[in-house]
Each structure stands twice: as C-alpha cells, then as structure tokens.
Simulated assay, not measured.
Amino acid sequence: MSGNEQSNTAALVLEDGRVFRGESFGATGRTLGEVVFCTGMTGYQETLTDPSYHRQIVVATAPQIGNTGWNDEDDESDRIWVAGYVVRDPARMPSNWRSRRSLPEALVSQGVVGIAGVDTRTLTRHIRERGAMRAGVFSGPALADEASMVDQVRSGPQMLGADLAGEVSTGATYRVPAVGERRFRVAALDLGIKSNTPRMLAQRGVETHVLPVSASLDDLLGVEPDGVFLSNGPGDPATTDHAVTLTRSVLERRIPLFGICFGNQVLGRALGRGTYKLRYGHRGINIPVIDTATGRVAITAQNHGFALEGEPGERFGTPFGVATVSHYCPNDGCVEGVRALEVPAFGVQYHPEAAAGPHDAAALFDEFLGLMENHDA
C-alpha cells in the first residue's frame, strides 16, 4: 500500500471486535464514543450540532450525505458535538444556495474524525442485533493493528452512568427575547438545549432565560418565570440528581413545567420513575408516537438512548399527586411522555422543535403556553 493510500484509509472498530474499513472522512486521527445510528434522511447539520449527540459516533443510514453542504443558519449549537461520523457515500460536491462550505470542510475545521465508504446497512443491522456499544474511528497515524485498536475502544468510557449535561450546558445565563410583544417569561434549564427551542418559544411571544445546568433554585426563581422548561441533553439521566431536585422544587411551587427528551426523563425521575438504557435507542425524524388519551399518532424527531420505566396509559402515584404515562412508541412500547394530573407539568421524549424533522408535535409548545395562561388566570 502506498503512503497516499495509507493516509486515506480509516477503520471503524467496535468493542465486540467487528471492524469496518473505509476512507478517512473529515479530520484524521482517533476518536472514541458510543456508536449509534440515525435514520433521518435529511438534517445532518442539525444532527451533528445537537449537544445530545455528545460522545457518540453517529452512523447515517441515509446512503448519501453532504449534498446540501454546510450553511451558517442551521446549527443547533455553536459547534459540532458528535464524537465521530460514519457515512456510506459522501457527496462529491455540495449544491444548495445556502451552502457556504462542504461537509468535509466543516468536519476538518472542527477536528471531527469520520469514515466514509462503509456498508452502513450491514453496520446498522449489526447495532440493532448487538446493541449500541463503544467504538472508535481510526485514520492516518492513529491506525494500528486490530487487536490494539479494539483494546483502545474497550478502555473508553461507557454511556451507562455518563454524566454529560454539564459538559454541554451554557456557562452563564443568557436571554432570548420574544418576537413582538412579550407574553410570558420562561426559565430554561440547559441540559444540552438546541437553538430552535427558544426560537420557537420566541415566535409565540415567550422570553426565554437559558440557565446553566448548575443553576440553583434561587437562580431560577430570580428570573421570575411564568414557566420552566427542561431541555434535551446527553448522557445517562440517572446522573441528574441536581436537576431532579430542582424540578421537584418547581413542582412543589406549581410553576408550569415542560420537558423534552432528556428533560422528560428528569421530570419522570422527579415524579418517582426509574430509567433504563435502550438496546439501540431512537434516533431519527420518522418515529411514530401514540397519545394514550386520544389515540392520535404523531411522526416525531427523536434522539435518546435511555427511557423511563412504565407502561402505556399507566397511572401512578407521585409526591405531587397522580401522574400518567401519556405517550408511547408503538414500535417497542417505549414511554414517550409523562403528565402530572394535579400539578401543571408534562414532558415528551421526542423533539417538538423538529429541526430537522416533522412538525406534528409543534403544538406542544402551545400547550405549554396554555398551562402558563391558566396559571396566571
């Protein structure tokens, strides 16, 4: 093998010893993380910049990635958060009027190690059968013999027990003003918030104060919020004791509360529910969810590797009165939402801000506004 061929070679190594060979894509080097697959056909820029993907190597199941390049408008945060990226057929040249650079250029500029030319269909089936696991992408001088690379992967941290929200949360509180006249003020606990969430609240006349995950109850109450929002985020929800305690204090004060994804799990824990790790998680923009009260099906955007314990439609007691499992996924029965019936609080496991993705769940923001209106009445 020539030096040039060697420099362009890459390997995706799984902790069970399976190795997928391909070409270097993005930055060259080594990266470790949990390998997961995302079934979205579009929205790779939003996926890569979603803080919920922190420390994960994302496999794109869509065969061709990078067609629309990289623009300056669709980032969900101020950086790419994925640990690595795995694609089958990268676009040779981006074509979109908003594109400012190619996807590989964006990956290189932010030091994200990836691999292309992988049989992602076989890889996805392998993850479905064996479950999400630790993995590594190796290229350039980081390439080594397979046994050495497997050892490096197995020495990496597991996602179970990983406390990651503090690594992606804002360092200081910031404000996103309402568009037009301000109707409500919301305190949002940043567990890994996506940019489109305060943007969608702003469009509804909500001024959002985004607080660090370490914020105290006094910090939160100092905002004088009409409501509290718990954001999405990465890691194991069993590690969020501070956020859970803060949420219980909010529930005790009957301040309207809405949580999504990781925030839904924090709310569930505050209501007394446990959490567990899914075999390979839900990641994509085409996942069905059923509302147990109405039977209505929504097609949703999701990104979670953990779930709350419970059964569809289950009613259970909490320190704040009765609550219910309000939504579930028909694919596997996974809990997709909880609702407190005696205090103004609810959460869903999916992403109503839907960037990128379907808009079926956008009305949940209006429901949150409804809680705040009724609370003020």
Rank of each mutant, 00 (worst) to 15 (best):
A238W: 00
D360F: 07
V150P: 05
E181Y: 10
G117K: 05
A162F: 09
A144L: 12
P312Q: 15
F25L: 08
D163A: 12
G357P: 12
V19L: 01
T239Q: 04
T239F: 00
G43C: 07
Q203F: 08
I193G: 04
T324A: 14
E181R: 12
K194Y: 01
N8V: 14
P330H: 06
F368S: 00
T300Y: 06
P352N: 11
V59R: 03
L267I: 12
F229R: 01
G161A: 10
D226C: 01
E129T: 01
F320I: 13
S326V: 07
L267W: 12
A362F: 11
G84Q: 07
R128H: 02
R183L: 10
T122F: 12
A293Y: 02
S155G: 15
G161Q: 09
R30P: 00
D72E: 11
V150A: 08
Q6V: 03
V186L: 05
G321Q: 14
S2D: 15
E373S: 00
E5D: 15
G66N: 04
Q152Y: 01
A172N: 05
V206I: 02
Q158P: 00
A354H: 14
V150M: 13
G272N: 14
T124S: 12
A354V: 10
D72S: 11
I80V: 15
F25K: 02
G29P: 00
G274W: 02
P212Y: 03
Q6N: 14
P237G: 07
D72A: 05
S52H: 10
I260H: 07
Q64Y: 13
D151Y: 10
L271W: 12
A165S: 08
F262V: 05
H282V: 00
M93T: 09
E105Q: 15
S148Q: 07
G268S: 05
Q302M: 10
G295P: 02
S148K: 08
A293Q: 11
F229G: 08
P157G: 05
L267Q: 04
A361C: 04
L251K: 08
G69I: 03
P256M: 13
V186W: 01
V206Q: 09
Q64W: 10
G295W: 06
L364E: 09
A270L: 01
G310N: 01
Q152M: 02
L201F: 11
R128E: 15
A144D: 14
E34K: 12
T173N: 01
L32M: 14
V322S: 11
I80S: 05
L371I: 09
